[in-house]
């Protein structure tokens, strides 16, 4: 996964609360190998009618949303399951940033692990951005700012996640560098709490 610092792109508005992971990708698509691409599954049931035809009124199906890399949406985005497939669907559909007043906890971790920024802004600022869409936005991970037609907003992001997005770190390699500390910890744990190892 490559890191990034600035995303300049089109923002699409999805003015809905509680977009959960089951909506981001319905369960029936999840046995698909990732190599086939998850983009077409994104918000499938919200964006299609009962016969599988795209609903032209669904915000992400409109012409102005095509090619968007930034999604602006209401509170509690990504609540629900731990399915990383919800993030794959967003990333494979071309998104690099989601802006919302709040995010599902596991979704946020999964997003950062895939280079997708979950940027938190206050509810009023999100409403401002929603009314400004479609718009070109400039997202800066160094400055932690989102700039667009309505001005510049400072967003919240855990500093650990910020570094990870910028560096595109692979945690496994980082962790393996701590091999001796892990081994020492394990040895102690086996001594003080041997019952932790199942029989």
């Amino acid at each position: 996964m490559g890191g990034w610092t600035v995303e300049q792109g089109r923002a699409a508005a999805l003015p809905v609360e509680n977009i959960d992971t089951d909506q981001l990708i319905p369960a029936r698509f999840m046995s698909t190998p990732r190599s086939e691409g998850y983009g077409p599954f994104l918000l499938y049931d919200l964006g299609h009618d009962a016969d599988g035809r795209p609903d032209p009124n669904f915000p992400l199906n409109r012409a102005e949303a095509q090619g968007a890399s930034i999604l602006v949406t209401r509170r509690n985005f990504g609540a629900g399951s731990s399915r990383e497939a919800a993030v794959y669907a967003l990333v494979d559909a071309g998104f690099r940033v989601v802006i919302s007043p709040s995010f599902g906890d596991i979704f946020s971790s999964n997003a950062v692990n895939n280079g997708l920024l979950p940027a938190r802004l206050g509810p009023e600022e999100v409403e401002t951005l929603l009314s400004a869409c479609p718009a070109e936005l400039h997202v800066d991970l160094d400055a932690l700012t989102i700039s667009g037609p309505g001005g510049t907003h400072a967003f919240e992001l855990d500093p650990v996640w910020r570094q990870k997005l910028i560096n595109g770190w692979d945690d496994v390699d980082l962790t393996l560098a701590h091999g001796p500390e892990i081994a020492a910890f394990e040895a102690t744990r086996r001594t003080v709490a041997p019952w932790m190892w199942p029989a």
Partner: peptide
């Protein structure tokens, strides 16, 4: 106890550890 995504599952499989705040 907490739920994790696929990237973290792979990390735990490989290292028996997890990064958390």
């Amino acid at each position: 106890a907490f739920g994790i995504g696929a990237t973290e599952v792979a990390h735990v499989l490989a290292t028996q550890t997890i990064w958390q705040k």
